[in-house]
Design a protein around this nucleic acid. Structure first.
Lengths: 207, 207
DNA sequence: CTATGTGAATTTATTCACAGCA
DNA sequence: TGCTGTGAATAAATTCACATAG
């Protein structure tokens, strides 16, 4: 089956596979079976095969998947081939953690710009990125940045999102628990630490 | 319908409702309809009603839900009523952001302890929490801590998780992209910033 | 009249089992 | 023989439509 309707869940798993493949490649492996990859990413082997089957025949029967080729295919599907520049808004503790996070490289992301409204950090370099005044967000399009990570306090999130949308940003990774409103063409993914922590006790036996 | 099989997705949404209710209460409202709450949390009204219906009749027909009562019910379901002490492992940028995060209060969480292996931070206070040597993790049970947040570099995550499990921790919120292995009785929720960012380009039209 | 609560219909996702190819 | 690829079966979640209660 090729390119029918793709489950959202499949798309959610593809970056996980990509990461597993990168680690296996780092171990010097050239090829991997769905069973071996399954152990690595904690997704059942038939699920992995099914996920790939939506896009084409990437494996070789009796052998497995060529790691380099499969990685390339997944990147193509996820539209990661060209590499992506991202901007960070909010250079507090969380923002600084994002700037220092090594995990983006696998996916071809580069944090190209950082913004804050605090004069104490504007003009500073955090890692290799210069922190700019938040009013400079409108320069993003011409700098080729279409993605942004929002790591500002909740009460500022919507107004930052508005600025980003006005600047032509197409995708936002939002760390604020506030659901931000954007035009439908803009995709927002929200990560809320507290709501995730809050469902942990439900799964815990007694206490 | 009461307490049949509860969809995992329902559990995932309950903390979001709780948060929305807290904000509505903050606006001085006493009661809210599923439609109004829907606007707030961005979940359709029938989904909200269905989610609640798994647990009982919390609303009043023609009127809506009493915010205080509904909040209490959700807390009871999520096992948040008693309040929970949590420990943080890894007081880097991300860990510090977690310590400073105001969003835990709604759910009754308190960060009770923080651990690191870096002598430069051990003994320091971050916010109101003293950073202890990581070897002190084994004191957690007797201090009533059953939840932990892991914000250490990837290569240390598994060994930290092992220590936490040995110390009797029952739930782990894991910020490392490495899937950590734990006994089945321990619940792990993983947050991986990079894999979330990585699926954003898929949803973006052209580039 | 208004807004809940919920069976039933539909859609979406997972799981299985095995045919088919290297 | 070993592992992929995938239809078909199952399970899970969403959506709808409306009877029902305040």
């Amino acid at each position: 089956m090729r390119y029918g309707k793709i489950p959202n869940e499949t798309i959610r798993r593809l970056p996980i596979y990509l990461r597993g493949l990168a680690m296996l490649a780092g171990q010097g492996l050239k090829s991997v079976s769905s069973g071996k990859l399954a152990d690595f990413v904690n997704v059942p082997p038939f699920q992995i095969r099914k996920d790939f089957s939506y896009f084409g025949d990437f494996g070789t029967r009796g052998v497995g998947y060529d790691i380099a080729n499969l990685s390339r295919q997944i990147k193509k599907i996820l539209n990661l081939e060209s590499g992506h520049k991202a901007a960070l808004v909010g250079v507090g503790n969380l923002g600084s953690a994002v700037l220092a996070y090594p995990g983006f490289k696998i996916y071809g992301f580069e944090i190209e710009a950082a913004f804050d409204n605090n004069p104490a950090v504007i003009g500073r370099k955090v890692g290799s990125v210069l922190v700019e005044d938040i009013s400079k967000i409108n320069t993003l399009t011409k700098r080729g940045v279409m993605l942004a990570i929002v790591a500002v306090p909740e009460q500022a999130a919507q107004q930052v999102a508005d600025k980003l949308v006005a600047a032509g940003v197409k995708g936002i990774l939002n760390f604020s628990p506030k659901r931000i409103a954007v035009p439908k063409k803009v995709k927002v993914i929200t990560i809320d630490i507290a709501t995730d922590l809050a469902r942990l006790p439900y799964y815990i036996p007694s206490s």
